[in-house]
Amino acid sequence: MIVYDKPHALLDVPLHYCPGCLHGVVHKLVAEVIDELGIEGKTIGIAPVGCSVMAYDYFACDMIEAAHGRAPAVATGVKRADPSKVVFTYQGDGDLASIGMAETVHAAARNENITVIFINNAIYGMTGGQMAPTSLVGQVTQTSPYGRDPKLCGYPIRVCELLSELEGPEYLERVTVNSIPHIRAAKKAIKKAFMNQIEGKGFSLIEVVSSCPTNWGMTPQNALKWIEEKMLPYYPLGVYKDRSNGEVK
């Protein structure tokens, strides 16, 4: 009996991510969900600019690379071209919560029937570790070398909480992938986000609190701890909106 093997919806190619980067874990979860729901043949994924921009080389379903921040708008076009297709975006924090905030908020407000996988690792990875809209207060990055100063650049944005104020979105949940139980819970959430779309319920966003060992300047192991100790207190896990079940945190 196979306990675990590479999901079919991921191609058997090496990922370009740094050692210990959790993008791969989330890629696997998305692919496992696609496999379990049997939707690979009708799924279109959209990965905009960021570390995951080359996700089109990894997923076995049709893929679109999009401009920085614009994935929810592109997804809107793809979904409206054929609503029977399953459309997901895979976006980082700079992409979704900074340059693409308008597209994010409005796709959510329209309850666009898409699934958004949002990787929050509190940094711009691809460009070498600059301050993200989700970088923590005091966090040292290339563009906040003395630590993020809220007097200069404000406070990190809690995306799930922000979007939960909107009437539109169907489902908002924050998960993490720094341990086996958390990974299992994250998969459940991602599956629900895809199920919601298949059932026509609308916009589902799963925020995955993730790591960036390279740009955080720590080992993959310490990055998992940093998630637990620094990220989760500011970004509490949980369901922030589940409209069909009348749940708003």
Binding site: K6, P7, L10, L15, G20, H23, G24, V25
Partner: peptide
């Protein structure tokens, strides 16, 4: 181990 491995 397989669940945790980012590179499957």
């Amino acid at each position: 181990c397989a669940i945790m491995c980012p590179d499957f």
